[in-house]
Amino acid sequence: MWGGTMATAGGPTVRRRQLGSELRRLREHAGKKIEDVAAHLECSMSKISRVETGQAPIKARDVRDLLQWYGVTDPAQTETVMQIHKDAQQQGWWAHYGEVLPSGMATYAGLESDARALRSYEPTFVHGLLQTEDYARAVIAAARPNEPYEVDQLVSFRKERQALLTREPEPLELWVVLEESALRRPVGGRDVMAAQLAHLAETTALPNVTIQVMPTAKGAHAALAGTFSLLEFEPRTPTVVYVNSIAGNVYLEKERDVRTFIQTFDLVRAAAPDPQETPATLEKIAREMYST
């Protein structure tokens, strides 16, 4: 008996998440625990957990084995699950950057590519999708000062990500709240920052991009704990929260966690000035900080 409706659209990262979610649902319906599955497939419990959250691959023969073990007898259901597995094996455009990407970044790139909309709070840097090449190079080189090849590759990777904002027929909808202090930090020097601010001003003209600048004078607000992003997909594919830090990348999908971050972002954008004020704010910062 088909116990739920699975979405049928999305790239390999979303499809892997769909596969993991369905395998988890079937496991629970069959009354099996993660440790039972690990013993059955002769692997670790952490591997099963990663498969069910879409963070690790699984072989086709293991999927078929699990479907049989879970008592799935409907050929149509088996075919659907196996097709999702096949789609999840496709490589995304980011695969050829795999050797230089930080841990977890390939997963993020896949989610970002599949997303319909992205909402983000950025307190320290200009958002990666809005960075100029020179600004991106300065940020990346600061973290990898002795790795010029990796810097070049990561700059190219960031530029390819930015194509999402102009993809056809449906560009990514982006809404970013930037801290004023991030725009006053002279990353790369005065000329680089002047060009970066000009680029932001130009980007605000895109109908699918909204940028707000949170004034430093605003003081405390709901998102002071740090940067985060909300990745939204097509209907029936749950929103994902992405939190990036030096300690590592965290993905949150539980409804309670996602709801908390949605509320936080709503509070932050409500506290920031209207997006229509952004071009004037950018011009003011450029004049005060980077004009010659």
Score class of each variant (00 low, 15 high):
118 L>Q: 12
138 A>I: 06
122 E>L: 14
131 Q>E: 10
42 E>R: 11
52 E>H: 10
87 D>S: 11
64 R>G: 07
133 E>C: 00
66 L>Y: 00
59 K>C: 00
94 W>D: 07
71 G>N: 05
80 T>Y: 10
64 R>M: 03
86 K>D: 14
83 Q>W: 04
79 E>S: 02
107 T>M: 12
73 T>A: 15
74 D>Q: 09
144 R>I: 13
97 Y>P: 00
146 N>T: 13
41 L>N: 05
108 Y>G: 06
54 G>E: 08
146 N>H: 10
109 A>N: 01
49 S>T: 12
143 A>N: 06
42 E>G: 14
80 T>L: 12
109 A>T: 12
83 Q>K: 09
123 P>L: 03
148 P>Y: 07
104 G>S: 05
132 T>C: 06
86 K>E: 15
72 V>M: 10
146 N>Q: 08
58 I>A: 09
95 A>G: 03
91 Q>A: 11
101 L>M: 11
93 W>K: 10
73 T>F: 08
86 K>R: 15
114 D>E: 07
86 K>I: 03
146 N>W: 06
118 L>E: 13
42 E>Y: 01
42 E>P: 12
72 V>W: 02
76 A>I: 02
91 Q>F: 01
53 T>P: 02
83 Q>A: 04
77 Q>L: 11
52 E>R: 13
108 Y>L: 15
119 R>T: 03
53 T>A: 01
90 Q>M: 02
127 H>Q: 13
128 G>I: 02
105 M>T: 12
53 T>I: 03
57 P>I: 12
70 Y>M: 03
46 S>G: 10
138 A>N: 06
73 T>W: 10
59 K>G: 08
38 A>H: 06
83 Q>Y: 02
107 T>H: 07
78 T>Y: 02
73 T>I: 11
134 D>H: 05
102 P>L: 13
70 Y>D: 01
125 F>H: 13
70 Y>H: 03
40 H>I: 11
126 V>A: 04
142 A>K: 06
118 L>R: 06
110 G>W: 02
65 D>R: 07
122 E>K: 08
126 V>W: 04
120 S>M: 08
78 T>F: 05
111 L>N: 11
140 I>D: 01
66 L>G: 01
58 I>W: 00
140 I>T: 11
93 W>N: 10
35 E>L: 10
60 A>E: 14
89 Q>C: 06
79 E>I: 00
148 P>W: 04
42 E>S: 15
102 P>S: 13
141 A>T: 15
103 S>M: 09
75 P>L: 13
41 L>W: 00
126 V>I: 15
144 R>H: 15
103 S>K: 14
104 G>Q: 04
84 I>E: 12
37 V>A: 03
129 L>I: 06
145 P>Q: 02
65 D>N: 10
118 L>F: 08
62 D>V: 00
52 E>S: 08
50 R>S: 14
67 L>I: 01
83 Q>S: 14
133 E>V: 13
138 A>C: 04
131 Q>K: 05
120 S>P: 03
87 D>G: 03
147 E>R: 14
92 G>M: 04
107 T>F: 02
49 S>Y: 01
109 A>V: 09
115 A>Y: 02
101 L>N: 09
148 P>M: 09
125 F>C: 08
48 I>L: 11
36 D>I: 12
56 A>Q: 13
48 I>V: 15
77 Q>K: 04
